Amino acid sequence: NCLEGLIFVITGVLESIERDEAKSLIERYGGKVTGNVSKKTNYLVMGRDSGQSKSDKAAALGTKIIDEDGLLNLI
Rank of each mutant, 00 (worst) to 15 (best):
G70Q: 10
R19F: 10
S55D: 09
R28L: 08
K23Q: 11
S53T: 12
L71F: 08
L72F: 14
T34E: 15
A58E: 06
A58D: 07
L25Q: 05
G47C: 07
S53G: 13
S16M: 09
A22G: 03
L61V: 08
E18N: 14
G62C: 05
G62D: 07
G5S: 03
Y29V: 02
V9E: 05
T34D: 15
G70C: 05
N1M: 07
C2P: 06
A60V: 10
S16V: 08
D69K: 12
E27V: 07
E18Y: 01
R28H: 13
E15R: 10
C2R: 10
E27G: 03
E68C: 09
K40N: 10
G30C: 03
E15D: 15
R48P: 05
I26A: 00
F8A: 00
R48T: 09
S24R: 13
T34K: 12
G70H: 06
C2K: 10
R19M: 14
E4S: 08
T11A: 11
L3M: 05
E68I: 15
S55C: 15
K23I: 15
D20E: 13
D69T: 14
K40A: 12
A59V: 12
N1F: 02
K39Q: 10
E15K: 14
S24F: 09
I7L: 11
L44A: 02
E21C: 06
D49P: 03
G31E: 00
N36Q: 14
E18V: 03
L44K: 00
V13D: 15
G51D: 15
S55L: 15
L71C: 01
I7P: 03
S50Y: 14
R28I: 04
F8H: 02
D20H: 13
E27R: 09
D67P: 02
L74F: 03
R19W: 07
T34Q: 15
I75E: 00
D56W: 08
V45C: 02
S55N: 10
I75D: 03
E27H: 08
A60D: 10
L14Q: 04
L72A: 04
A58R: 06
V37C: 05
L6G: 01
L72N: 05
S53W: 10
